[in-house]
């Protein structure tokens, strides 16, 4: 509980300081992918399901909301419709995927992702195909840097609070039961497949919400937002931050976006550096950044406790 309190205070500070540290588009991207990573963690870290198809929901929802804005619908209709769209798609795809476990689940979600990519690619008239969906305009009321940031921050906070409610509800506990011991969860009366589908849907719906916001940043949807490489990035951001805690993935997002922004300016072949970082993290820092910090914190605490203890002994001797 205490740990969560500190993380939330850190989060609020970040929301106030962030806009001064990073360019406008970058901080908006961080918050939007923050929603993606935290919700993906519900499925990955809490329920123990690895989906390699989350870009599907992100991209599809971005297209839906982009197309609605182009069609003249208001933003406050476009976001819910796009989010609901990803919810429906996630139920449909999830129904087939959650029947399978482990590698087969990864294969299926991956293949579905690429199915949607090719639909977007071929359906040039609607999605813009390879050129992406362009010319989406932000509504006037969020067109300044400040209002747009406030808007994304509010949406981000809304999503984080909703997801936190889920994690601390009985549903969150059921997800952990499935991760820990699916057959025992079944034996005490939980329909594991049903709850896996719920977990998959929650992750995908919130990823969809993030996708529907993404279109506002650059006023377009590039087709690589639905490519399977994006799914890989999403998994990396989540794991990089650490799946052991609720807000851990956010650290991964900030780190990933900051690094890729920095390297992409320096060198066109920056994905090479990212690849090397991925590999090093996997081989040597498997718990992610948040666990690294936690361990350092623990070490610090045990050292300070030790010195306190020594101090006590000294004091006693003096007395």
């Amino acid at each position: 509980m205490m740990k969560n309190k500190y993380s939330f205070i850190a989060l609020i500070i970040f929301l106030f300081v962030g806009p001064f540290l990073f360019p406008n588009a970058t901080i908006a991207e961080m918050l939007i992918f923050g929603i993606v990573a935290i919700s993906t963690n519900i499925m990955l870290g809490y329920t123990g399901m690895l989906s390699f198809g989350q870009a599907l929901f992100f991209g599809t929802s971005a297209y839906i909301s982009g197309l609605m804005l182009l069609g003249g619908f208001p933003l406050f209709l476009a976001i819910p419709v796009a989010t609901f769209g990803s919810f429906i798609i996630s139920l449909f795809i999830g129904y087939f995927c959650v029947k399978r476990e482990g590698l087969y689940f990864i294969c299926l979600t991956f293949a579905f992702n690429q199915m949607f990519y090719f639909i977007a690619y071929v359906w040039h008239d609607v999605t813009g195909g390879e050129d992406g969906l362009v010319g989406v305009e932000r509504p006037a009321y969020i067109d300044t840097q400040l209002t747009f940031y406030i808007f994304t921050a509010i949406m981000f906070l809304f999503a984080v609070i909703a997801l936190y409610k889920i994690v601390t509800s009985p549903l969150g506990l059921i997800f952990k039961l499935i991760r820990e011991n699916a057959s025992r969860a079944e034996a005490i009366g939980y329909n594991v497949r049903f709850y896996k589908l719920i977990s998959f849907s929650i992750a995908s719906t919130f990823t969809g919400l993030a996708g529907s916001l993404y279109v506002l940043i650059h006023s377009m949807v590039p087709i690589d937002q639905i490519h399977w490489l994006k799914s890989g990035d999403i998994i990396f951001m989540t794991l990089f931050g650490g799946v052991g805690s609720f807000l851990g993935p956010l650290i991964g997002v900030v780190g990933y976006i900051w690094l890729s922004d920095t390297f992409s300016i320096i060198w066109a072949r920056w994905p090479l550096i990212m690849g090397v970082i991925f590999a090093i993290v996997v081989l040597y820092f498997r718990g992610g950044v948040s666990e690294l910090l936690e361990n350092l914190f623990k070490k610090y605490k045990s050292i300070s406790k030790k010195t306190e203890h020594e101090q006590n002994i000294k004091n006693r001797k003096l007395n």
């Binding site: 994905p271 690849g275 991925f278 590999a279």
Partner: peptide, 8 residues
């Protein structure tokens, strides 16, 4: 993730 990194 490791193999994905190698792919990149």
């Amino acid at each position: 993730l490791f193999l994905f990194a190698c792919a990149l």
